[in-house]
């Protein structure tokens, strides 16, 4: 009935959705590293434009993308406030009793907030445009060199994909049990924290019983079909690198290298300032 795919996958079939998940995963990892090398506003702006461009290409509504930032709003605010009040600097902007706000503090607060938001946005685009199964396959493929040193990569990937597959099933089951207990007059919404926690017992016990039952059934079904984790397996969906993956990688790398060039060679901020100065 409720066809919500786990996570926030937003199906729109855009070119970003069709990119090889391995490429997307590696680019997101590089992006995260890159973020920590951003030093000035110009580069924050450039990265923001980059994320925006990818978002437009992916046809994911910006409203949905920015909604992911909501989850870290409190974290951003706390970090910003702490940095605002506790950064020492030379140029005092405001002082009242024990509160001293320096220009450096304001700058640091803004930059950290920008960094956190940018850190949230791009990886969100990954989960918005890639199904959990594609991600698992990508991780398995990327980790496959570890097979040489006898790391059970396939088993790990299998555990991940079963866990991912089970989440929507367990969520559906939870909903069903909640409905059944509500029909028996259960009240999950009123009372203090302890009462609310206690009200969850009639949901959690059947949920756990059901999870173990399902695990047993799944193991039996896999056994019945002679499943073995050491066997060589083929994939239903084989991942191939296409031209668009090459183009996407080059584009991302170009943007990321801008950041590094800016930090170590040029200084856009100063260039822009000198233009106006």
């Amino acid at each position: 009935m409720n066809n919500i795919v786990f996570g926030q996958y937003y199906p729109s079939g855009s070119v970003v959705h069709r990119l090889d998940p391995r490429v997307k995963l590696v680019m997101v990892l590089l992006y995260i590293v890159t973020i920590f090398f951003v030093v000035d506003y110009a580069m924050y702006g450039a990265l923001f434009l980059f994320v925006l461009a990818v978002a437009l290409l992916s046809k994911v509504p910006l409203r949905i993308l920015f909604r992911t930032v909501r989850t870290i709003v409190i974290l951003v605010l706390i970090t910003a406030v702490i940095n605002l009040f506790f950064t020492q600097g030379e140029e005092m902007l405001f002082s009242w009793k024990f509160i001293h706000i320096y220009k450096e503090g304001v700058e640091r607060a803004i930059k950290l907030a920008l960094r956190l938001i940018l850190l949230m946005l791009f990886p969100s685009l990954l989960t918005l445009t890639t199904t959990p199964m594609e991600l698992t396959d990508a991780i398995e493929s990327l980790l496959s060199p570890l097979k040489i040193i006898k790391v059970p990569v396939h088993a790990i990937a299998l555990i991940m994909s079963i866990a991912l597959r089970m989440i929507p099933i367990l969520m559906e089951e939870t909903n069903k049990i909640i409905l059944a207990q509500k029909a028996r007059g259960a009240d999950f919404d009123t009372g203090g924290a302890l009462k609310k926690a206690k009200a969850m017992i009639p949901v959690l016990v059947p949920l756990f019983v059901g999870a173990f039952r399902r695990a047993d059934e799944l193991a039996l079904a896999m056994d019945a079909r002679c499943y073995s984790s050491v066997a060589q397996r083929t994939k239903y969906k084989v991942m191939h690198l296409a031209v668009r993956d090459l183009i996407a990688s080059l584009f991302c790398l170009a943007v990321f290298s801008l950041v590094f060039l800016n930090k170590y060679l040029w200084h856009f901020d100063e260039m822009i300032l000198s233009l106006f100065g």
């Binding site: 089951e173 059944a180 029909a183 028996r184 007059g185 016990v205 059947p206």
Partner: peptide, 30 residues
């Protein structure tokens, strides 16, 4: 909910308490 009694699909999956008596008393207690 006291007027409309709802027996869901596979109702046995909603059992949770230690004893049959306690489980059956869940509804009336609510």
């Amino acid at each position: 909910r006291g007027t409309v009694g709802m027996v869901m699909q596979y109702p046995e999956y909603q059992l949770f308490d230690e004893t049959v008596e306690k489980d059956v008393s869940y509804g009336p207690r609510n």
